[in-house]
């Protein structure tokens, strides 16, 4: 019987996809992105980025989707939650899911620098 994979977060995103953050991956990314250990950030802001992102954008030259939630914009300073999710489903714990690769707070949209289109909820594309 396959071993059960520990899950740090599981939710259905706005695209009706089941998205999970494996516990082992979450623990690893906490080392680089300590905001993941802040209970005001994870899981609430990450969940919000998946359910009602400000926009989403395809990753540059790989099979991921990046979901961005604008946290604030003050005096020209932007801060986002970024959640990178694999665009290929896989089976985890007997369920077909999409895996979160990483998540962190950032002050810019890297994919925009490569000309990738931003898709806003409600259909506007820039």
């Amino acid at each position: 019987m396959p071993e059960t994979v520990a899950i740090a977060l599981r939710c259905q995103n706005f695209q009706k996809r089941i998205v999970v953050f494996r516990k082992d991956s979450y623990d690893e990314h906490c080392l680089r992105h300590p905001e993941l250990e802040d209970p005001t950030f994870f899981p609430p802001k990450v969940l919000q980025a998946l359910k009602t992102p400000t926009f989403w954008v395809k990753a540059y030259k790989n099979d991921s989707i990046c979901y961005y939630l604008e946290l604030f914009a003050i005096n020209g300073i932007m801060k986002y939650v970024k959640v990178v999710v694999s665009n290929k489903s896989q089976t985890i714990n007997g369920e077909r899911v999409y895996r979160i690769k990483t998540s962190f707070k950032t002050d810019h949209v890297q994919e925009q620098k490569y000309g990738n289109k931003l898709h806003y909820l409600g259909g506007t594309t820039l």
Partner: peptide
């Protein structure tokens, strides 16, 4: 180097709690 996310980090093994990213 994280092959899954194509991210490279050169820094402390564990980032301090108050760490933030600055582009």
């Amino acid at each position: 180097y994280d092959t899954d996310t194509d991210e490279m980090t050169f820094g402390k093994k564990t980032m301090p709690r108050d760490t933030f990213l600055f582009n």
